[in-house]
């Protein structure tokens, strides 16, 4: 099967299609047991993500945002409630999503190019060598890793490894992206460029996205909807639609007054949570 068949057609212009429910979490709770003690990481979380929506989850670290992604990816089962994808319960590794975890999970014994191309070695996405080379080169170009194709992950900086991981995920164009702090290790300029590139790709390919970040600016710039999480246990404190147009220019957006207003509004919610999480960590010591 050629990779071209994996790419879904460009959107029909004009009529807005009825948005199906893509991902849904219904009254989900997750308990973890460490050293015999059980604690609740996520509590009473209900999220509905329609197809093609870009949802951002923000909150202090350790608030269970990543846990939500793990459940959608099918890597973790909820202790209570249910998680469905395309209407079917998620019960095993969800191969319809591309998941970029916080830790870059590049295979350390493969070069950058071989890491990025690995999806095409798998039976379900097999591509011939020439095709593969071409797509890998394209992706390497996209994430700005030209000249580093033959390097091993250990030879790259943290930011470069992140970009390679991003390329590896984007290369097979999954219909849904789960992104866990994808740009955290990048410097400011590169971050803006990568955000813009990702937006372009997501809009063009009509992907559904859940982005986890602690950077509120990033969330507002990129998402259609932002959810603020409380911490310990993670609950949804508030949510807000972000009314900016698509396709969107993130570079220019950040200078608009509406952007500042929304940012300020959400920040007032978020800062209490950050304060609470700092306080809790202090007490835990």
């Amino acid at each position: 099967m050629s990779h071209l068949q994996l790419i879904r057609p460009e959107p029909a212009t004009g009529a807005t299609p009825a948005r199906r429910r893509k991902i849904s979490l219904d009254k989900v709770a997750v308990d973890f047991t460490t050293r015999g003690k059980t604690f609740r990481a996520v509590d009473d979380v209900t999220i509905e993500v329609p197809e093609m929506q870009f949802l951002a989850l923000v909150g202090p670290s350790g608030c269970g945002k990543s846990t939500v992604l793990n459940m959608v990816a099918g890597l973790l089962a909820p202790s209570e409630g249910s998680v469905t994808y395309d209407g079917a319960p998620v019960e095993a590794a969800n191969t319809r999503v591309g998941y970029m975890t916080q830790k870059d999970t590049l295979l350390p014994w493969r070069s950058v190019a071989d890491n990025i191309g690995i999806a095409f070695e798998l039976r379900c996405r097999k591509a011939n060598a020439a095709e593969r080379r071409e797509r890998v080169a394209e992706m390497i170009d996209l994430v700005g890793l030209k000249g580093f194709e033959r390097h091993f992950p250990a030879e790259l900086s943290g930011g470069m490894r992140k970009r390679a991981a991003l390329a590896r995920m984007l290369i097979y164009e999954p219909e849904t992206l789960l992104l866990d702090e994808p740009f955290a290790a990048l410097d400011a300029q590169l971050r803006i460029l990568m955000q813009q590139e990702l937006l372009r790709l997501v809009e063009r390919r009509q992907m559904t996205v859940i982005l986890v970040t602690h950077d509120l600016e990033e969330a507002v710039l990129m998402a259609d909807r932002v959810m603020v999480f409380t911490s310990g246990p993670g609950r949804i404190r508030t949510e807000r639609d972000i009314p900016f147009e698509r396709p969107r220019n993130a570079m220019e957006l950040r200078f608009r007054p509406e952007f500042s207003a929304i940012h300020e509004e959400l920040w007032s919610e978020l800062k209490d949570e950050f304060a609470a999480s700092v306080e809790r960590e202090r007490r835990a010591q």
Partner: peptide, 11 residues
């Protein structure tokens, strides 16, 4: 913190 891994709690 929990390190995410394949449906560990389902096995």
């Amino acid at each position: 913190m929990w390190k995410g891994s394949v449906v560990r709690n389902r096995q």
